[in-house]
């Protein structure tokens, strides 16, 4: 469904040159959920931005559904690939009601039947028609993130890119949103690419996980490896230790990678 091969991104020129993504390759089959995990500056979000088309200065190959995508995307691309952002407060237009936000993509792609589509997708994300004419500031963080999911779903895409979809939410809300994402994936047979810094979230959501550091893939593991701790790379092991909570003795063993 999605194939990324030797993706490279370089920001800046000369002395300020920053090789943000180095030879990153992975594939995700239809219905798969692929995780990208790493710390800040690891390039995980940059990879996502290249796939989505927000970034144009990349080299390499990105294939969606067997056909390569180019730097300038065709309108049909946006009906196949959609994205959910991290910050539920920043990803909705503050002056548009939920109704306006959800009808916009329908108008862009001239799909018609807007009212029925909006109604259905709102129900699907568990919000219902009561929320339809509210402004974002009348919603809680979790509700906003549900709207963001609804907006991604309304074009009926096949791939959804999730950029830290729950890291700005309280843990109880995170659980609800993660459950929602799982349900929708099962129902619609969607392909997910999930970016997160949280190993537990990635392990809960994804089958295969690429661990990234400083723009490079450290290793690609499956979740069973994560659970059993049979990891090849020291970096991944350190990340796993760190995600298990505060342990004074272990911290002294930490290295910079």
């Amino acid at each position: 469904m999605l194939r990324v091969d030797r993706l490279n991104v370089i920001f800046g020129l000369g002395a300020a040159k920053n090789h943000a993504v180095k030879d990153v390759s992975f594939t995700a089959a239809r219905g798969d959920s692929f995780g990208l995990v790493g710390e800040s500056g690891s390039g995980k979000s940059t990879v996502l931005n290249c796939i989505s088309g927000l970034l144009a200065n990349w080299d390499g190959t990105i294939e969606v559904d067997g056909s390569p995508v180019f730097h300038k995307r065709h309108m049909s691309f946006y009906r196949k690939v959609q994205m959910v952002f991290q910050d539920p407060y920043g990803s909705l237009h503050p002056r548009h009601t939920i109704d306006q936000t959800l009808k916009e993509p329908i108008a862009i792609h001239r799909l018609g039947d807007a009212n029925r589509r909006v109604d259905r997708v709102l129900r699907e994300v568990g919000l219902g028609p009561r929320f339809r004419f509210r402004y974002p500031h009348q919603l809680s963080g979790g509700q906003r993130q549900r709207v963001a999911v609804a907006r991604a779903l309304i074009l009926e895409p096949e791939i959804i890119l999730l950029d830290e979809p729950t890291s700005a939410l309280d843990v109880s809300i995170q659980a609800e949103v993660l459950n929602l994402l799982q349900e929708i994936r099962a129902e619609r047979n969607l392909t997910y690419v999930l970016v997160s810094h949280d190993l537990a979230v990635v392990s809960h959501m994804c089958d295969r996980i690429a661990v990234m550091n400083r723009g490079e893939t450290v290793e690609i593991i499956d979740r069973r490896q994560l659970q059993s701790g049979s990891l090849k790379e020291r970096y991944t092991r350190q990340l796993l230790t760190a995600s298990k909570g505060y342990d004074r003795a272990a911290i002294d063993q930490f290295q910079d990678f």
Binding site: G53, L54, M75, Y78, Q82, M83, S91, P105, H109
Partner: peptide, 13 residues
């Protein structure tokens, strides 16, 4: 550069 503008760009606007 806000997310809501990125989001609408990703919807083909």
């Amino acid at each position: 550069n806000s997310d809501f503008i990125r989001a609408i760009r990703l919807q083909g606007a």
